[in-house]
């Protein structure tokens, strides 16, 4: 029974990773850049909710809505100011800028909110589910996280395949130049992708902070990196891949925490990344990229 409970908690953690990983994988697929600041957008979302709900007493639902809007605005602003001017520059320059933005957000948060951890109470009011006479308890957070994760992936997949702006995203990720010739607004599409990714980050922050109720300026950094690992694991650029990679990673992390060593769990997660890169660099569901000269 304890194995099953670790397993289900792993799926829940994995769903959070998956939601964050979606932001990475979409941006990477379209802009071909690693948005290092994505994890810190989560942190900003967490602070917005904290300030609104716990300090000002706003209704949680409105708080989450405002956090989603704030993160979306933040994501689009970052893209416009820091990434767009460098679209044609060397990849190294873009990467360094992204690290700079991530570092800037962390240190701004440090300046405003100090490094004292804020204790975050769960915003999810769902009673825990008791199975098998109380031997297996599934918390409300776990269930909500898993459901939200699945809903987001289904909606997002539908959106990308069946709407005009979704197909524009696919076109831009295939070939920017050709998409532009076909009348797709490339800059607009990339900004829209950042908006979706950042909105998802805000939802991720609600789920993350409900499951791990301490909030510091570094809160987003590690989950952000792990979510990127999940995106690579599942195949970068692929939406079902991000979900699959996230859940697998969450399960691996939780099981190694339970059965091997809690301090080594992170090392094992990154070991998985290295293994994946060695065996199948494009990830589980990734497409093989043919390099053209």
């Amino acid at each position: 029974m304890s194995f099953l409970s670790y397993f289900i908690n792993g799926i829940s953690l994995g769903s959070v990773y998956a939601i964050i990983a979606l932001g990475y994988t979409m941006v990477y697929g379209i802009a071909k850049m690693l948005n290092f600041a994505h994890g810190d957008v989560i942190m900003v979302g967490g602070y917005v909710i904290f300030q609104l709900v716990f300090a000002l007493g706003v209704h949680p639902f409105i708080g989450i809505l405002i956090a989603v809007i704030a993160c979306t605005v933040l994501g689009v602003t970052i893209e416009r100011l820091a990434y767009r001017p460098l679209r044609m520059a060397a990849p190294l320059a873009v990467l360094i800028t992204a690290i700079g933005v991530s570092y800037l957000l962390q240190n701004l948060a440090l300046l405003i909110f100090t490094s004292n951890p804020k204790s975050f109470q769960s915003l999810i009011n769902v009673p825990a589910l008791k199975l098998a006479d109380g031997a297996l308890v599934i918390s409300g957070e776990t269930m909500v996280t898993i459901v939200v994760g699945i809903v987001i992936v289904v909606v997002l997949s539908y959106f990308i395949r069946n709407t005009k702006s979704g197909r524009a995203m696919l076109a831009v990720s295939e070939d920017k130049g050709a998409a532009q010739l076909m009348g797709v607004n490339v800059n607009g599409t990339i900004a829209f992708t950042f908006a979706i990714g950042s909105a998802l980050a805000a939802i991720g922050s609600v789920l993350l902070c409900s499951a791990y109720p301490t909030l510091t300026p570094q809160t987003g950094a590690m989950p952000g990196i792990k979510a990127f690992v999940a995106a690579v694991f599942g195949g970068i650029g692929s939406i079902p891949g991000a979900m699959l990679g996230g859940i697998l990673l969450g399960v691996i992390e939780n099981l190694s925490k339970a059965y091997i060593s809690s301090q080594m769990a992170d090392a094992i997660v990154f070991g998985v990344l290295i293994l994946v890169l060695l065996v199948k660099p494009t990830g589980i569901l990734g497409k093989k990229i043919q390099e053209k000269v």
């Binding site: 044609m88 520059a89 800028t97 240190n107 300046l111």
Partner: peptide, 17 residues
């Protein structure tokens, strides 16, 4: 650290774009 972050961003924006 805050200024380090700004150094990274501005060096790239003004040097590499």
């Amino acid at each position: 650290m805050l200024f380090y972050a700004l150094v990274l961003i501005f060096m790239m924006l003004f040097g590499q774009s």
